[in-house]
Amino acid sequence: MNAGARNTLISPAARDALQVWLAQQGALNGAAENTITAYRGDVVDFLAFMTLHKGDSQGLGALARISISDMRAWMAQTRGSGVGPRSMARKLSAVKAFYRWLAEREGFEPTAVLSTRAPKFTRKLPRPLAVEAAHDMLDNVRTQARRPWVAARDVAVLTLLWGCGLRISEALALKGTDAPLAQTLRIFGKGGKERQVPVLPAAAAAIDHYLRLCPHPQRPEAPLFRAIRGGALGPRAISQVMADARMQLGLPASATPHAMRHSFATHLLDAGGDLRAIQELLGHASLSTTQAYTAVDTARLMEVYNRAHPKADG
């Protein structure tokens, strides 16, 4: 069933409520457009299922009477359609967020929905590149493109990911006003959260080299990183650059632009960096997210500790 058909199953009141909630997520909570799109799809799927499951259009009154057995039926149907536990957890999270807001607005008790538990899943640890592999990646990219300015651009972007821990979206959001790079960058991450990121001399030099070669005029409000024809550079182009490089280097498919950001975190920790300081640099809301980035190196450090500490044998 396509999105249009699912929408027709939802009552006008529920559709209006969903639209108000989504608008609030963007305006007040700073949710990104992709996040809002995902929320909309997840909640629409849920509301459409409840209409079919109950055999009647689910107005706001009916939505307030959703039971635990209704929730189990929705989860069983969704899992049966091939949705994995991780995606199921995301869908349930979106539905709970909508219901929490709706219950407060309409004055009903949302316990049946909020008490529903997501299926357990094993979190896949990120796979950072080894220091040597990260160096090899930059060296390969430096000679990969036919146009010298494009090669310099690609190296500059990847240097920001590895050297400053930026997300690819954050690096590509930089404007002409950000150059030349100062000693720190003011970055607006997920949800518009602001953080200050120190800039390594190597990153500043990579940007300067790219700008000297770039044939497109730099304007203050124009994107710092340009595509071949002068428009904004997209993340897919950088992903392809790394895909080509990792094939030549024999690196695994996990060697992606985001892996360069993982590498920033693990290499800092490996050098003695403080986990909470790294959390701030990455812009993580939760320390547990930073720990996931660095779990492999943390385990290795604990091995060293247990082997070398004077009390290890006692």
Results as ranks from 00 to 15, higher is better:
residue 46 F to K: 08
residue 121 F to K: 08
residue 59 G to W: 01
residue 168 I to T: 02
residue 2 N to E: 14
residue 93 S to E: 03
residue 123 R to S: 13
residue 15 R to W: 09
residue 15 R to Q: 14
residue 173 A to Y: 02
residue 303 E to G: 15
residue 180 P to F: 04
residue 98 F to C: 02
residue 40 R to V: 03
residue 296 V to L: 14
residue 268 L to H: 14
residue 225 F to K: 07
residue 173 A to M: 03
residue 308 A to K: 12
residue 84 G to Y: 04
residue 194 E to M: 13
residue 217 P to F: 06
residue 118 A to H: 07
residue 3 A to G: 02
residue 158 L to P: 00
residue 227 A to R: 13
residue 246 R to Y: 02
residue 110 P to R: 11
residue 304 V to T: 15
residue 116 T to I: 07
residue 144 Q to Y: 05
residue 58 Q to F: 01
residue 181 L to N: 04
residue 57 S to D: 04
residue 70 D to K: 07
residue 163 G to K: 08
residue 86 R to A: 15
residue 108 F to P: 00
residue 261 R to T: 10
residue 192 G to P: 00
residue 249 L to N: 08
residue 301 L to S: 12
residue 313 D to E: 14
residue 275 L to H: 06
residue 79 R to T: 15
residue 304 V to H: 07
residue 186 R to M: 14
residue 73 A to E: 09
residue 38 A to E: 01
residue 46 F to T: 05
residue 154 D to I: 04
residue 251 L to P: 00
residue 58 Q to I: 14
residue 48 A to G: 05
residue 117 R to S: 14
residue 1 M to H: 11
residue 292 A to P: 00
residue 55 G to L: 07
residue 310 P to R: 11
residue 13 A to Y: 03
residue 100 R to G: 15
residue 138 L to F: 05
residue 267 H to E: 13
residue 77 Q to G: 08
residue 45 D to N: 15
residue 169 S to E: 14
residue 111 T to P: 00
residue 165 G to F: 00
residue 34 N to I: 07
residue 113 V to H: 06
residue 245 A to G: 02
residue 300 R to V: 13
residue 248 Q to A: 15
residue 281 L to D: 03
residue 286 S to K: 12
residue 25 Q to P: 01
residue 29 N to K: 15
residue 286 S to R: 14
residue 17 A to I: 03
residue 52 L to V: 11
residue 144 Q to G: 09
residue 35 T to P: 02
residue 7 N to F: 06
residue 197 V to T: 12
residue 17 A to D: 09
residue 107 G to Q: 11
residue 177 T to A: 15
residue 309 H to T: 10
residue 251 L to N: 02
residue 145 A to L: 09
residue 130 A to L: 12
residue 129 L to E: 09
residue 279 Q to Y: 03
residue 107 G to E: 11
residue 192 G to Y: 02
residue 50 M to F: 09
residue 31 A to H: 10
